[in-house]
Amino acid sequence: MTNLVTSEAAHVDPSNLPVIDHLDFLTRVLLPGEATGGSFSVVEQRARLGCMTPRHLHGRESETFIVLDGALEGWCEGDTTLVQAGTVLHLPAGREHAFRVASGSAHFYNVISPAGFETFFPATGRPVVQTFDGELPVPGPVPPEAAAVLQGVLASLGCELLGMPPFPVG
């Protein structure tokens, strides 16, 4: 069982964290579950228009997106919501959902509760040698061999891919 209480304060200097290209999103795990007693994690991401996730379902985690710059479009079981800088989008556990960058670029935090899913990003992304605020990757399709790896890691985390993104491409 995860200990949901931690007695240690946590301070994070994001400039010291590794930067990962995860499906063309620049990603860094700001606060892993170990720092919160497993109660939540915080992931920071930046991406260009055209970056999106497939439809998927988390068996236990909710995702809350805090948009710092740009806009995201969230999709949850057929309903879409546009969220812009200064607003928040919550996608609950147990509900099919997806999201995409809906502006030229976007910068946002993803608060994942409970923690654990943040391990997905370093497990399936690739480290890059650049600063987090550097050039954004150009979005492209996920190669078939990468999709198989993604599905394997997702299954181990109690998450499943349910289909193509529900958004228009481009």
Rank of each mutant, 00 (worst) to 15 (best):
M1T: 10
L4G: 05
V5M: 12
T6R: 07
S7K: 10
H11C: 06
H11I: 15
H11L: 15
V12T: 11
D13N: 13
P18G: 01
D21A: 04
D21I: 05
H22N: 10
F25M: 14
L26M: 04
L26E: 02
T27S: 08
R28P: 00
V29Y: 09
L30F: 09
L31N: 00
L31Q: 04
G33K: 06
G33Q: 08
A35R: 11
T36Q: 02
T36A: 10
F40T: 01
S41W: 07
S41Q: 08
E44G: 00
Q45P: 01
Q45W: 01
R46H: 09
A47F: 06
R48S: 15
L49Y: 14
G50K: 04
M52F: 14
R55I: 14
H56T: 05
G59C: 13
E61P: 05
E61K: 04
T64S: 12
F65A: 07
I66G: 00
L68D: 05
L68H: 08
G70K: 03
G70A: 02
G70Y: 02
L72V: 10
E73G: 05
W75M: 09
C76Y: 00
E77C: 01
G78F: 04
D79C: 00
T80V: 14
T81Y: 05
A85Y: 11
A85Q: 11
L89Y: 03
H90C: 06
P92L: 08
R95V: 14
R100F: 10
R100M: 09
A102K: 10
G104E: 15
N110P: 00
V111F: 07
V111Q: 01
A115Q: 05
A115N: 02
A115I: 03
F117S: 05
T119V: 08
F120P: 00
F120R: 00
P122R: 03
A123W: 02
A123Y: 01
T124V: 12
G125N: 09
G125I: 06
G125M: 01
G125P: 05
P127E: 10
V129G: 02
Q130E: 11
E135N: 02
P137R: 02
P137M: 05
P139C: 02
P139F: 04
G140N: 06
G140A: 10
E145S: 13
A147W: 09
A148L: 15
G158N: 12
G158C: 11
G158M: 11
E160C: 10
L161P: 03
L162N: 10
P165S: 13
P166T: 06
F167I: 11
F167Y: 15
V169C: 01
V169R: 12
V169H: 06
G170A: 15
